[in-house]
Design a protein around this nucleic acid. Sequence first.
DNA 1: ACCGTGATGTGAGCGACGCATACATTGCCA
DNA 2: TGGCAATGTATGCGTCGCTCACATCACGGT
Lengths: 232, 232
Amino acid sequence: MKVMKRSSAPRKDHYHHGDLRNALVENALRLVAERGPEGFSLREAARAVGVSPGAAYRHFADKAALLGALSADGHARMVATMEHALAHLPEEPGSAARAIASFLAIGAAYVEFAVAHPSHFRVMFGPCKPGEDDLACLAAQGRDTYQILVDVLDGLVATEVVLPEARIGAELPVWSHVHGLASLLVDGALTLSSSERHDALRHAGHVLLRGLGCSPGDLPAARPVTVDPRQR
Amino acid sequence: MKVMKRSSAPRKDHYHHGDLRNALVENALRLVAERGPEGFSLREAARAVGVSPGAAYRHFADKAALLGALSADGHARMVATMEHALAHLPEEPGSAARAIASFLAIGAAYVEFAVAHPSHFRVMFGPCKPGEDDLACLAAQGRDTYQILVDVLDGLVATEVVLPEARIGAELPVWSHVHGLASLLVDGALTLSSSERHDALRHAGHVLLRGLGCSPGDLPAARPVTVDPRQR
DNA sequence: ACCGTGATGTGAGCGACGCATACATTGCCA
DNA sequence: TGGCAATGTATGCGTCGCTCACATCACGGT
């Protein structure tokens, strides 16, 4: 009664998967990207890996924990995108110009990441009901991208693009703006073409820098974008 | 076999409810506020009204349609909040000061509404998969609040707080910022006390107005807010 | 006054879901 | 080599969204 193996094609060679946790995250990533975070089901992810639904609960306390892993992965990818953007800046003449370019680049990276991976973005920033101990983990997730923003703003002060007194509390308006634009685009309240996004980000960067005390002469040209909400 | 009525207390006097649609919306509103948009179920709403689950489908094509009704209701409440804020502005000396106060007031109304009704806000701006014909309806939802923003910005130009050339495309950065702050607060990525929100909004309004070319002398004092993301 | 027709609500049911439990299989280490 | 902890399976419970056949009611035309 042991020789009933050898049945159909996709025979399981190992009872144990070997790396089920990563396989689940990987497939969940794909499924969430396809069906969105709402339509995603833990059972389907397990099915995709060819494993019983219950097996997933050996690696994740519940569905929220799996999504939490996706969120962490997303934040990691986002900092990578932003750092890549910073590392591949076109050469700029002065250090002030470079600081401004960095400022614009990380903002663009933020919303382009959101537009390119909307479901992932929603999982990262969607409602989180962490189970007490994941709080530290969750807090750590946003820290890296936030630190990049802090550094870039410090760079604007160091190159004397903005004054030290204007620097205080500058993170919040900048982050809010970029996150708001990303959210509106991801949730479909607003639709912008790629070039419109580019213009909107440059214009907004212009406005924010001027608001932080940067003199207009230092700023790149920016074309404003006029929109209607939910236009079709 | 007709006299088996008169049983327990909540005896149904009418087979037909009379105004089931509104009753469903009303209870759904309450349930969404309690359990959040994710944990909300159409069945529970029907149960709350004391009606069979299938009855709801006589009035809403599916769960998304019910949430769509909630969304419309939310947008109506939001414009009411904003208009109320505009109508109850403290008296300001000059028309310019009043225009600036209006600008700050609608921003504050936007995020305070979001903070006060986070679930409702999520339903309003969450992912929408409208069924083709609801598109016009959906487009109309945001229009009123957007029009208020347009009028307030026009007011800033009329009172010469901002120059006409800076007015072009000013809606997007302003809306983005205010929506971003609201989203971060609602989704728990950021936690601010009531007074911190007040300061943050004033400071951000300051930055935006300066970015739009308003001279600093015209601006109210604004205390910046420094934060850490997901702090505990 | 009546009846039929359309609107509205009921009840049962289908498939899928999240999650819990008992059991089977395996790698690993003493 | 034997036993144990880790890992995966099978099964089941309660709920959900949604559908369908049927019951009940309101109302208007004759």
